[in-house]
Structures are given as structure tokens and as C-alpha cells.
């Protein structure tokens, strides 16, 4: 296939080149390229308006790129309408978890049904097998059988986010995109979910694209990171190196603004 670049080895699950997205006259994402290896964790860091969420939505196919290409698991993703069989195949390659645990579940759908619907769409299982697998998945994210019969409103925010993760991994995708997936959670719950995500990656070898504004969280969860600003990548590299010795002024400013012991807030003139 000609669209495969030389850099993309057999273990490359995402190869995106020159991605661009315009909304009317505004350019949300401008010439962003990235590669993701099987089982790796790539963070996309940026502030609001940096284009990180638009990038995530283009990767999973919720937005059509204005320019550039995305190749997932060796197959180029052509823009435009695709058959439902192709859409289901893409679903098994990449899944997404959103920020808001409240609106990412259908408020009328019971938790067990959320997971079973996923399974039903992608695997031919008997009702008994399906139910058993759904319970296994709920247990894998730290929920139990009694949660299966509950409605989303009976769960806390952290528990709902666990359900969203279970729904995504039910499909057994190669890649999970996490769009600010822990940003809306309490600190103590955030730690639980970060550990859960680390466990899932260790067990299944799934790769993560972790979209976040939070450098400390990114530090904990990712191997590699892109720093985005104004739709462009301003710096990229191995996460630890990037955060311990940032090269670009923007990354340095971002890092300097993170509260930590001995930190004092700094004042800059408004641009």
C-alpha cells in the first residue's frame, strides 16, 4: 500500500500525517502528524483551544479532517460514507472515552444493557455468554453484578466513568482514546481510574491516546507526549524527558504554571 510510510512498522497502530481541520475560517488543527505503537501510551497535552480534542475526534472518525491522512492498524481511513461493516471494523480498532461521565451514558439504559449492547454489536454470543462476559467486564473495571441492573443516575461520577471504560474495552479495540477522561473526577477517584487504566493496558496491550490539560496526570499515564498550542504541535518527545527538561518556551510556561510544593503563582501581562 502506498499510503503506508516507511516509518510505520507492523507494530504501528496509528499513523497520522499532516492532519488539518478547519471550522469555517478558523483552523482548529494545523499540520499534526503522529504515530502510535501497539501498547504504547501517547499523551496530547494542551490548553483550551489548542485543538487537542478536535485531533482526538478526527482520529476516531467523529470529525472529518480537512486535510491529511489517518492510517489505523495498517488500513487507511478514507473520509466520507462507509459501509456499516467497515464502521464496525473501525470500532474494533479504536474506541473513545469522553470527559463528562454524566452525559456519556444514555440515562435510560441500564448498566448491564450498555455493555451487552456493545457485545451484541460485535460478537455472536448466546444471551447467557453475553451476560457472563458483561459481568466480567464490569468486574474488570471494579464494578459488580449489582451495578448491572442500575441506571446511570444511581451511580457516582467515578462509577459512570468505569462503565464508559468497560463499554469501550468490551469491543476489544487496539486503541483507546481518552478525551480528558479523568478531568471531571474528584482527586481520590482520579487516582483510582488512572490505576485502572494502567492495569488495563498492562493486561491487554491496548494503546492509549490520552488527551489532557493536566501535566501531572500525563506524567503518570503516558510514555510519549505531544504539546499542542493553537492547533500545532509545539514540542514532542518521551514524557519524562519532555517534562523534566522542556525545550520550548510554551512547554516551560505550561510546566511552570503547575502548582506544587514551593510554587508561587506568576503574573504575566495580558496579550
Amino acid at each position: 500500500m502506498t499510503s503506508l510510510k516507511k516509518s510505520a512498522g507492523p507494530d504501528t497502530v496509528i499513523e497520522a500525517a499532516g492532519l488539518r481541520k478547519e471550522f469555517g475560517p478558523a483552523v482548529a488543527v494545523d499540520d499534526v502528524s503522529l504515530t502510535l505503537e501497539r501498547g504504547a501510551s501517547l499523551a496530547v497535552v494542551g490548553e483550551s483551544g489548542s485543538g487537542k480534542t478536535t485531533l482526538a475526534r478526527m482520529l476516531v472518525g467523529l470529525e472529518t479532517p480537512t486535510g491529511g491522512t489517518v492510517t489505523v492498524c495498517g488500513r487507511p481511513r478514507k473520509p466520507g460514507r462507509v459501509s456499516s461493516a467497515e464502521r464496525r471494523r473501525r470500532a474494533r480498532e479504536m474506541q473513545i472515552v469522553f470527559q463528562d461521565p454524566y452525559s456519556s451514558l444514555d440515562k435510560l439504559q441500564r448498566i448491564g444493557a450498555v455493555i451487552e449492547t456493545s457485545l451484541d454489536l460485535h460478537f455472536s454470543l448466546t444471551p447467557g455468554e453475553r451476560r457472563k462476559r458483561a459481568l466480567e467486564l464490569l468486574e474488570a473495571v471494579g464494578l459488580s453484578e449489582r451495578h448491572a441492573s442500575m441506571l446511570p443516575r444511581q451511580l457516582s461520577g467515578g462509577q459512570r466513568q468505569r462503565v464508559a471504560i468497560a463499554r469501550a474495552i468490551a469491543v476489544e479495540p487496539q486503541i483507546l482514546v481518552l478525551d480528558e477522561a479523568v478531568a471531571a473526577l474528584d482527586v481520590s477517584i482520579q487516582a483510582q481510574i488512572l490505576n485502572l487504566l494502567a492495569d488495563i493496558r498492562e493486561r491487554s496491550g491496548i494503546a492509549y491516546v490520552f488527551i489532557s490539560h493536566d501535566l501531572a496526570v500525563v506524567h503518570q499515564i503516558s510514555d510519549f507526549a505531544l504539546v499542542m498550542s493553537g492547533g500545532r504541535v509545539v514540542e514532542r518527545g518521551a514524557t519524562r524527558a519532555l517534562l523534566s527538561a522542556p525545550q520550548e518556551a510554551y512547554t516551560r510556561a505550561l510546566r511552570a504554571a503547575v502548582p506544587r510544593p514551593g510554587w508561587k503563582p506568576e503574573r504575566r501581562p495580558v496579550g
Binding site: Q190, A191, N195, A198, H219, L243
Partner: peptide, 20 residues
Amino acid sequence: LSRPSIDTVVDRLPVIPGRP
């Protein structure tokens, strides 16, 4: 302790179980 740090990475974050 459960808050990730920008200076150090721990293998697993020490968590407080349950919810507030």
C-alpha cells in the same frame, strides 16, 4: 499522595478506596 506528581512517577498511585 493520590494526586499524580509532575516531578516523580510512581508505579501505582496510592489510592483512597471508595468514593467521597
